[in-house]
């Protein structure tokens, strides 16, 4: 309850500051519309915004799912198989040398103007934080746990695989959880960039379109909805991670 109140006060403060700026500077509505204009536009064009928000949300969720699956897979590969570490690790680092923004036009060229290219963008942008954090967790298993498990499985076949499954993966889940939180917060960037570069739907497309027609109030309304989606996503992921890992001290850390 207290937390909700704090959120509300912060939000109201921001809106008030925004309004104050508009009133004090007398800025034109097509440069910076007042909050009231944005809310009116949001209500007026709700159908249009909602439809595009659905598109963007689906892109984000698909990207999040794919990025998480691929990220976990590559972290497990690199973390478990030594040859994979030598070959895959440099590739992972190099892959981050290509800015996703620069790749966007190529992805649109290859995958088309519809959803696939946006999902690919979101996947690309979150794949690395997921891989890096999960891998970090896999590498930092408490040495005592590994020693213990090693004596318990001495002489057993597949001992390394079992230690991975029963010890190292569960031990790495809190780190994966932080990776997923970052992923939830950054996945929308991928989808929006994809929509900017070439698309026929989604909030990014709607904003670009509105911007070109000087409908700045519509742009702000779309932006507001996008922020709401991102926040909802972040807090959902955060809650799920905390619920899944009640034993992890990390769970107490995130935003309350």
């Amino acid at each position: 309850m207290k937390a909700a109140l704090r959120w509300f006060i912060s939000f109201a403060g921001l809106v008030a500051a925004w309004w104050l700026v508009v009133i004090l500077t007398g800025v034109e509505p097509f440069i910076l519309p007042s909050p009231l204009l944005v809310v009116l536009k949001l209500i007026e064009r709700w159908d249009y915004i909602f439809e595009n928000a659905i598109t963007t949300t689906i892109e984000i969720l698909l990207g999040l799912l794919l990025g998480t699956v691929i990220g976990c897979f590559s972290a497990l590969m690199v973390g478990h198989f030594r040859p994979a570490r030598r070959w895959l690790m440099p590739m992972l680092v190099v892959s981050q040398a290509f800015p996703v923004f620069a790749l966007a036009p190529i992805l649109v060229l290859w995958l088309g103007y519809d959803m696939a290219s946006k999902v690919a963008m979101a996947t690309l942008i979150i794949f690395f934080p997921v891989t890096a954090s999960f891998l970090d967790g896999l590498r930092r298993t408490e040495p005592g746990w590994v020693d213990l498990a090693a004596t318990m499985t001495a002489g057993q076949s597949h001992a390394r695989l079992r230690i991975l499954w029963y010890i190292r993966i569960p031990a790495a889940l809190p780190a994966l959880g932080s990776g997923l939180r970052i992923a939830a917060a950054t996945a929308p960037i991928g989808a929006i960039v994809g929509e900017w570069v070439g698309g026929s739907g989604g909030l990014g497309f709607a904003m670009l379109h509105a911007n070109a027609r000087m409908q700045v109030d519509l742009m702000f309304a779309a932006l507001f909805v996008l922020a709401c989606i991102t926040l909802a996503l972040y807090f959902t992921v955060d809650a799920l991670v905390r619920r899944a890992l009640p034993w992890s001290p990390d769970s107490a850390l995130s935003v309350e």
């Binding site: 005592g144 746990w145 020693d147 213990l148 010890i167 569960p170 031990a171 889940l173």
Partner: peptide
């Protein structure tokens, strides 16, 4: 094998 770290798995 047992050492001074109890090495209990927290999960």
């Amino acid at each position: 094998y047992m050492d001074q770290r109890d090495s209990l798995l927290p999960w």
